[in-house]
Structure formats: structure tokens, C-alpha cells
């Protein structure tokens, strides 16, 4: 049995979503520091639950996006497209997740390292 064709759609959708969130999390982190409108947006998301703090909004946004994107990429038409187009199997998905997470960590760590020690 081929792992590519048998790949569980929810598994693919949420794995792909995790890879995207790893990068989005880093971009939102840098964006909040560099663009005040982005930070204000995160604060406004936080205020939806009664806590007007950018970190609360950031967390809500990442977790909700992870769930929403997970279900979006689990849709048969979308997951079939990506799985076939990029020959996704579990190993390739894992590789994508690892690369995204390392890049995401690198962006956040590198950005704050520069601000703290080189800025």
C-alpha cells in the first residue's frame, strides 16, 4: 500500500497547518515588534477575551489558525491536490514540519538576539 495515496487527510491537513503556523508565528512575532499596527491588531484579538495584551491575542490567533487551517487543508480537494502535486507522504510532511519549525525558531531567536545583543 502506498503511503502517499493512503495518507490520512486530517493528518496531512494538521501537519501542513503546523508547518505554516511555525512560520506565521515567527512573522507575527517580528511584525508585532516592527509595525505598531500589527501589535495593535494582536491586542485587539486579545481584547475579544477581555485581556488587551498582544501576547494573548497572538496565542489565540495561532491556535485558532492552526485549527482552521488544519480543517481547510484536510478538505479532500485541497489535500488531494497537495499530496499529489508535491508527492506528500508522512516522511516528506515530517521533513517540511522540521524545516519550518527550525526556520521559525531561527527567525524568532535571531531577531531577538540581534535586538538584545547587537542592537
Amino acid at each position: 500500500m502506498s503511503e502517499t495515496t493512503d495518507m490520512d487527510k486530517l493528518n496531512f491537513g494538521f501537519g501542513f497547518s503546523l508547518a505554516i503556523i511555525a512560520i506565521l508565528n515567527a512573522l507575527l512575532t517580528v511584525g508585532k515588534e516592527e509595525i505598531s499596527a500589527v501589535k495593535d491588531f494582536a491586542v485587539s484579538i486579545g481584547s475579544l477575551v477581555g485581556i488587551s495584551h498582544h501576547w494573548v491575542g497572538h496565542g489565540i490567533l495561532m491556535i485558532l489558525l492552526f485549527i482552521v487551517l488544519g480543517f481547510v487543508f484536510s478538505q479532500a480537494t485541497i489535500s488531494d491536490y497537495f499530496i499529489k502535486k508535491f508527492s506528500f507522504d508522512q516522511r516528506r510532511l515530517l521533513l517540511l514540519i522540521v524545516i519550518s519549525v527550525i526556520i521559525g525558531i531561527g527567525i524568532i531567536g535571531g531577531f531577538f538576539f540581534m535586538l538584545a545583543f547587537l542592537g
Binding site: N11, L18, I21, A22, N25, V101, G109, F117
Partner: peptide, 28 residues
């Protein structure tokens, strides 16, 4: 400047990784 700022944002990755782990544990 470095440790708090990085830590508070790395943390979100742990949450989504744990959620994905849960999905794999129960669906695969």
C-alpha cells in the same frame, strides 16, 4: 530582551505540536 521575548513566542509552537501529536496518537 532575548530570553523572555523568545520564550514567550517559542511556547506557541509547543502547543500546536502537542495538539498535532494528539491527533496522530488517536487517528493513526
Amino acid at each position: 530582551a532575548f530570553f523572555t521575548e523568545s520564550k514567550e513566542h517559542f511556547f506557541f509552537l509547543g502547543i500546536v505540536m502537542a495538539l498535532y501529536l494528539l491527533l496522530l496518537a488517536y487517528r493513526s
